[in-house]
Design a protein around this nucleic acid. Structure first.
Length: 488
RNA sequence: GUCCCCGUCGUCUAGCCUGGCCUAGGACAUCGCCCUUUCACGGCGGUAACACGGGUUCAAAUCCCGUCGGGGACGCCA
């Protein structure tokens, strides 16, 4: 039975790298009829936060992939201790009475090779028992085989067969002096108990895996198959970190910026995995059908975001933006319309479902993020256009006088015109001819008058949605603006 | 410092295992042209990469060795 798990530790927001790990596990499970397990690795009471737990669920819920079983590591301490005890009874672990170091002091000392604390490995069982029953606190350390040139091995579906000299592995802790299991112990104990068959996780665990192989063997369990994923890195090549790189590494940032979950999933899949047939724009189903461990790469992938982050459009990886635009265009109009409507309402603007349905086709090819609806279609939602410069009204190769002439003419013919695409097209082209300007010169001042800017959706459809009344009112305002700006 | 992993266009990647079809393919980005009432979409085209050095071979992006570069792990964090 194929069983995979995603095991985040709730010490921060859901990270894009974690999200990708989740997605790959999910894809692998779904592709092969396996079981997807979510396990909260929350043994570090000090650093866990409720906010982090909710951020993880929030992110996963947005991805909308789901899972089949759910566990909390903190509720399984008895199991962890039991496995630690059994390893200790086999003499494959020993008590270390050396006082614990505090916090990061340990870390700063890690630029020197440390394998074990002197004296503790050799302590006799009797002496060890005596000190323990005298109330001395201790950490339980794994007794890594030393001095025999023993190799520790495991199989990795991505990186191949791995082996390392046991003498190079330190006597890592299984239990802390407060009796709590360490990550290595808890993780392996749960993987054994939950009968995990494949461990798919980030490559930052690759060198920890030797320790895990040792634990599995000591607990008398078979070793699962591993698949380590290449890391997601920042443009400068460093590991993605919340502290250094900010919101772009948090999943909810993508949600809030207007990414479609499936587009985001699609993007993440392409980082470190390839279907090998040049496809890139893929649906969830296509990804599921195409996913395999063989398609996973070995080298780190850069998430190509921009550090300074001026506007949303240039903070995100351009490929993520492109994929999102593709997914937006692939959505049925009604579906897209509802999503956009939600965003418009959230911004405090009003639009009826009918009107939004009419607007959506006009902006669908012009937005990359759902949030772009606010800038692409703003003029549909407001009563009063924001101020713009009168010179914007001038047609190409034209001046204020020509703009004036065009708008006057438009104001004269529009009241008798039916506000549908073809009649508007005909009426305005005829009008252009009558006053001796090119069609483009006719359209531009009207476009600016009703939209407040030059770049906008196609004119006739826009007028149709806006309606006769609003159109004429805005043309009136534009004419006034021209008069005020250019006195006599 | 010790150990481990990685190295194809700016970025994501195909090709590497099973040398020749690779004058290295695709995509994004970028530049140009076309379409066109603006913008966008779309179409066409351009620029752009096998880290370096040795081998092995008739033949190397592909196999071997070395160098350099990058990353990761080394905690009673996960």
């Amino acid at each position: 039975m194929l069983r995979v798990r995603f095991a985040p530790s709730p010490t921060g927001f859901l990270h894009v790298g974690s999200a990708r790990t989740f997605i790959f596990n999910w894809l692998y499970a779904r592709r092969n009829g396996g079981t997807m397990i979510l396990r909260l690795d929350d043994t570090d009471v000090e650093r866990n936060t409720a906010a982090s737990v909710s951020s993880i669920f929030e992110g996963l819920r947005w991805l909308n992939l789901g899972w089949d079983e759910e566990y909390k590591q903190s509720e399984r301490l008895a199991l962890h201790r039991q496995i630690a005890e059994s390893i200790f009874q086999k003499d494959l672990a020993y008590r270390d009475f050396t006082p614990a170091h505090v916090g990061d002091t340990e870390k700063s000392g890690a630029n020197q090779t440390w394998l074990f604390n002197p004296g503790m490995r050799e302590l006799s069982r009797a002496e060890s028992d005596r000190r323990a029953s005298a109330g001395e606190t201790f950490a339980l350390r794994f007794r890594v085989p030393r001095g025999h040139g023993e190799q520790v091995r495991f199989a990795d579906a991505v990186y191949g067969e791995q082996s390392k000299l046991a003498d190079d592995i330190e006597d890592f802790a299984l239990l802390r002096s407060d009796g709590m299991p360490t990550y290595h112990l808890a993780s392996c104990a749960d993987d054994i108990d939950l009968r995990i068959s494949h461990i798919i996780r980030g490559q930052d665990h690759l060198s920890n895996t030797y320790k895990h192989a040792l634990i599995f063997a000591a607990a008398g369990s078979s070793v699962p198959l591993f698949a380590h994923l290449p890391l997601l890195v920042a443009p400068d090549g460093s590991k993605l970190s919340k502290r250094r790189h900010g919101p772009v590494v948090s999943v909810t940032t993508y949600r809030d910026a207007g990414f479609l979950p499936d587009a985001f999933i699609n993007f993440l899949c392409l980082l470190g995995w390839s279907p090998k047939d040049d496809r890139e724009n893929m649906t969830r189903q296509e990804l599921t059908d195409a996913f395999s461990l063989e398609g996973i790469n070995r080298s780190n992938a850069v998430v190509n975001f921009k550090e300074p982050a001026a506007t949303p459009d240039d903070t995100f990886d351009p490929k993520a933006l492109w994929l999102n635009a593709e997914h937006i265009r692939a959505l049925p109009i009604e579906n897209l319309s509802e999503r956009l409507s939600t965003i418009v309402q959230a911004a405090g603007l009003h639009v009826s479902p009918q009107k939004m349905s009419a607007i959506t086709p006009l902006i669908r090819e012009r937005i990359k993020l759902l949030q772009d609806v606010l800038t692409a279609a703003d003029f549909f939602f407001v009563d009063q256009l924001p101020p713009y410069d009168a010179s914007e009204l001038f047609p190409q190769k034209g001046d204020a006088a020509m703009a004036q002439k065009v708008l006057d003419k438009a104001h004269a013919v529009l009241p008798q015109t039916e506000f549908q695409h073809d009649p508007l097209d005909q009426a305005l082209r005829n009008a252009a001819q009558e006053i001796g300007v090119k069609a483009g010169q006719m359209f531009q001042p009207i476009r600016v008058a009703v939209c407040g800017r030059k770049n906008a959706p196609p004119l006739f459809e826009t007028l149709q949605v806006l309606g006769k009344e609003t159109t004429l009112a805005r043309i009136d305002q534009a004419i006034d603006k021209l008069r005020n700006q250019a006195p006599a």
